[in-house]
Amino acid sequence: MQLKITKIGFLYIFLTILLGISAINTGNNLLFVLVSFLLSFMLLSGWFAKLNLRWLQISFSFPEECYAQLPTLIKITLINHKKIIPSFLVKLEFQIKGSKDSSSYSTTFFLLEKNSEKILSILPLERGYNYLERVVIFSNFPFNFFVLKKYLKIKEKFLVFPKPMNCTDFSEEFIHPYRSEKPYLSGEGSGEFKEIKDYLPAVPKKYISWKHTARFEETIKIKSFSQEVINPVLINFEQFKVQDLEKKISCITYLILENLKKGIPTGLKINGKFFSPQVSHLHKFNMLKELALYERN
């Protein structure tokens, strides 16, 4: 713990000394009472300040998906394990550090009874693993006479995906149609209208044909569509001829995200690894992780 006395604190010490001298000189016992109070306050405020920062537990929750240079929200939870006394005005400071740059953030918990949550917007600067460092809780409680700091031994890392960048000019030529043994079919309802069927559980409401349902009274009818054949794509990282590596990674990230959003199975060939085209969330995560950690330890 580190203690820094503020200007007001120094004034308080000066006042105590001044009154102390007056009390000793005059022998006025009421002045002695005041000085005794000032000294007790000094001692107890230190002890209470220490107690204010004790028995606190802090946890950070980072989102599963976050992208470099795009604001992202993190959740900070502060739990007070003290049984009776709340913690007041606990300020939190931390650094988010990438491989080169770092940025600082701070937030204040005004009154902490049992636990308190804060959602804070941060801006990760770089792709790859970012580290949560230099976590400090501090407070000027109880009277702003001093600031008590407590450095926490927290070092957490979280993955930041590359910044997506739209590079429509040259993206077409590096996207290769991928021929697989089994054709990729789109999900229910993306093809042409096929027939009217009876309602099945778990079918989205948008497929209900209210017109037909009304006609057949008690039976709910749904529209059925044919499935569409979609051509999957494969992105070859090495063949993507962009000089700037970061830009290249950003463009590919954008392509992957856009394709997957449209439901186009997308694969990636990078660093000797091959991700066959798929649309699953895990697949997306793996590809983006590979891009995020490209040439990063």
Binding site: F32, S36, F37, S40, L44, F48
Partner: peptide, 14 residues
């Protein structure tokens, strides 16, 4: 609580 406990502590100082 601070002034309350101070009452006891200040008697020692006094």
């Amino acid at each position: 609580f601070i002034p309350f406990f101070s009452l006891f502590l200040s008697s020692i100082f006094f």
